[in-house]
Design a protein around this nucleic acid. Structure first.
Lengths: 202, 202
DNA sequence: AAAAACACTTACTTGCAAGTAAGTTCCCGA
DNA sequence: TCGGGAACTTACTTGCAAGTAAGTGTTTTT
């Protein structure tokens, strides 16, 4: 069961995540967190001694949640195309409320200013995504529902990058609609010619 | 001719640009700039009263240079495909030396922390890119060298986003090679089937 | 030759951020 | 009921960052 301690920690991580996604790691302070949850800054230090500690804990939780989301997709749908559709929805859920960046897209740009353990976590997050995507893309191509050149790993890297980049520009223009548009475009781009008749009308 | 004043201003902008591309807007100070050019921080304030002033001046210069680069491409090559190849080279030139982000990719993630005039400049930079790309894509499709669904503007948005996203992951993994790979993939993705025989061997 | 403008400097203020130390309050188990 | 720990607080130190004010030496203009 969740102890009070863990509840508070989770609350701190929630606020920290929101602030980082909105402003970036170098533009939020322990004071900002404290103010939002109604305590003093020292209370935040009690739970996470340093900013780097907080960052690492946050990244670990974020990665754990990613794994849960990807597992959930794998359990709930079997078609590779449907998996990718669900995957794009994860990005939409992040972006939609208030044009948040993906936590890792944000930390990726700031990576040179992060501690070593945080850097490691950020890279691992990128890798987790690319690995999962590569598997789905490989499966899809093997069973004929996808068609693309090169290795699944290379395609995965590009698709993941595209989604990150689209989140960025959707944020810059405050046009969350760019994400679903790009998602459809990507799916169409890797669809074999033989299946194009199945596309929904535009 | 360039006055001493302008030389110093340019020098400050050079250092500021490098620092922002490497660390971000919220992770550099006037002191950092001063140290690198061998003056005191107040000297930087003499040329650019506030950080926001510096940022706006930097963005304006960056945009002017973008326009020069795009004009140069338009003058030097006529084939839409060759134009895109040259365009990708612009990104490579930015990324290559030390895994720098595009100045605007960096500022885009930090956009909520920027002054209004800076935000405007960042958005304008994105728009300039997308507008140019849309024109090249439209031209290319009209003359049969490209094939893609949807409006040229929509394709331009996605391609630009992809390049931004690829820069981000190339930086995260310190693998500059991801950019040319993605560039080739993108060009292939919008190439009509009839021309696939012309692809270079892999 | 005097004065004004230029490109700085030193010295300073303000304010915030990270982090620490030493309490204080409350609850819980022995 | 009393001791101890958990979850804070206040109060503090250190350090840096933005920005300002008042000089200083050098150069340019008149």
């Amino acid at each position: 069961m969740p102890t009070l301690h863990n509840v508070r920690q989770a609350q701190i991580l929630d606020v920290a995540q929101e602030l980082i996604q909105l402003r970036g790691y170098n533009a939020f302070s322990f004071g900002d967190i404290a103010e939002r949850i109604g305590v003093r800054a020292a209370a935040v230090h009690y739970h996470f001694p340093t900013k780097a500690d907080l960052g690492v804990a946050l990244m670990r939780r974020y990665r754990t949640r990613l794994h849960a989301s990807l597992n959930s997709i794998d359990e709930q749908v079997t078609s590779p195309r449907k998996k990718l559709e669900r995957y794009v929805l994860l990005f939409q859920a992040t972006l939609k409320p208030d044009h948040r960046m993906c936590l890792c897209g944000m930390l990726g740009t700031e990576i040179t200013t992060l501690s070593d353990p945080m850097r490691t976590e950020v890279r691992a997050f990128f890798e987790d995504n690319e690995t999962w995507l590569a598997r789905v893309l490989g499966d899809g191509r093997r069973q004929g529902s996808f068609d693309f050149d090169g290795s699944p790993a290379a395609a995965a890297r590009i698709i993941y990058s595209t989604l990150q980049g689209v989140m960025l520009s959707a944020r810059v223009f405050e046009e969350a609609g760019r994400l679903p548009t790009a998602g459809r475009w990507l799916l169409d781009a890797i669809m074999p010619p033989s299946m194009e008749a199945l596309l929904p009308p535009r």
